[in-house]
Nucleic acid binder design. Sequence first.
DNA 1: CTGTTAGCGCCTTCAA
DNA 2: TTGAAGGCGCTAACAG
Lengths: 341, 341
Amino acid sequence: MKPTVHDIASHAGVSLATVDRVLNRRPGVSARTREKVDQAVQTLGFVRDVAAANLAKGRTYPLTFLIPSNDNSFMRGLRLALDEAKERAGVERIAIRLVDVPAFDAAALASALKKAAAEQPAGIAFVAVDAPDVAAAAAEIISAGIPLVTLVSDLSGSARDHYAGIDNAAAGRTAASLLGRFTGGRQGAVAVLAGSMLVRDHRERCEAFAFAVAQDFTGLGLLPVLEGRDDPVVVEKLVSALLSSRDDIVGLYSLGAGNRGLVKALERLPAERRPVVVAHELTETTRGALQSGLIDAVLNQDAGHEVRSAIRVLKAKADGLPVVAAQERIRIDIFLKDNLP
Amino acid sequence: MKPTVHDIASHAGVSLATVDRVLNRRPGVSARTREKVDQAVQTLGFVRDVAAANLAKGRTYPLTFLIPSNDNSFMRGLRLALDEAKERAGVERIAIRLVDVPAFDAAALASALKKAAAEQPAGIAFVAVDAPDVAAAAAEIISAGIPLVTLVSDLSGSARDHYAGIDNAAAGRTAASLLGRFTGGRQGAVAVLAGSMLVRDHRERCEAFAFAVAQDFTGLGLLPVLEGRDDPVVVEKLVSALLSSRDDIVGLYSLGAGNRGLVKALERLPAERRPVVVAHELTETTRGALQSGLIDAVLNQDAGHEVRSAIRVLKAKADGLPVVAAQERIRIDIFLKDNLP
DNA sequence: CTGTTAGCGCCTTCAA
DNA sequence: TTGAAGGCGCTAACAG
């Protein structure tokens, strides 16, 4: 039978309350008593029952999520995932608070972080904008002992407990390999379509992609990056203009959002001129394009996984529990038309 | 505040014990009383606190896992995943019992299943051999009310609560697409290397692969399936023989295990004659081959995920709780050299 | 500094 | 068919 607080209390010759104080590192225990209790914990191999502890504390975990008020499919998916998490909130003893922050606005994010921290939640998750004032706010939160997790987009300098998102450099390399090999040795130009080079994930994907193409596929020439601001309308214009301005484009990597515009532009192209296309995020749009052959591969990060992972990590950190690293790694899903879920 | 049993007791004008009986569908409650309680549950929106319930019951979940005593990397990984799960057993209130069964032996598996069921565990997970007597044993377990999950390889006829494994037909199709597109329009022969056509996952992968190749890549001709029995030595011989018997092989799909033999055979081939190779399961061997360029893509199922998913589902079923389907879908991971974890 | 006592939300005897 | 009381493992006042 697993030892309980009673066992260690009697083993150490003290009362339950004292055991509890030691276990929770609360003050008011003499060094010797503490010693005895620790000893008993060791020898009996005691591990405290978190469920029971939470029950006793009546504890719930107020978690704050800061999400950019961006209206693309991915962010919508993220909100959906949060809604689903809220539904299970009761059972999991969490209370999720969703805070909207202006997209790509470091100052706003930093102050939102500070405000969130002031409420002393059990944990905070946020989509990072990689800027000094955000990092400063994050560092403050960490040193205040509030678990902090970055979501989707990470922060430089490790001023957080955990990053729940994909490895964007790996994503860029993977896109390069797929695109390069799918073109099957054809020579030509490759276009890169990003949201904005000011965002860290886009930058990382782009750089890794460019590097890998240059290294492994010398027959392919990279065109200057197009910045579509994750906006379908802008994207459509840019891609249309590009495709009509030259006819040697054999590949296109869309590493941001706004793929609705991309697909529209591609649809107008005669089939024989269609480039190999690799895009990010599985949405209604990209799924359809995958099935119709307009897009060849989609790299995806699962928003649901990211949210659940963030919650698990935040709870674990709040409880001072270890995290199963392997379980929390967010993978880069590769979807072809054949393995769509 | 979330309603508790007390709330619904007073609301229904009955005692806690009665509420409990109704909640757990135990006998000895008049229809009218039951009605009142159910009513109160509805109107108050009561959901029972599983953690507290388990605490009160002192409940742990004895789970039995039946794993084939096959010594390939994948099964070893599965055992490792189970060991890790055992370490978290205390916290998660589970007690995992691992039972070895002879590989590919339907009769042995069926009797092992019966024996496992006799011990009345909270749930059973097993790697299915797709045979009638196994299905019969499974059906018996299900009708005895013991949650049952197939792991890695499924059972026909849905005589189980859940399948924790990948969609093997999708895997076969995906392999075909990758291999076909990576060959870049070259004409030639494609070899398929399986473990045994008697195993369901291999059969499904193989059929789907063959179908997709025939449909989408008319330049590729499929050779008769080689059965390497998941044995590196056998595999090496078969592949070596094949590669020296003809020089028009542009692709190879290894859908089973024993890839150590495959890699050895490939290594001896001059670089310019190397086919495009797609294999299954990320192991030390396939990882190395991916990095060195001997293998082009690896389709993988994450044993850790499968085990954790099986545990979650088994616990949920045992508690009569719903499962988050999206969370339990086991994906087909696609690994290129670029996105290795 | 230490101990006693009363719960947290639920289940389970044991009586009525 | 129903209810009262005690306890699961832990925490949190409140006393000493």
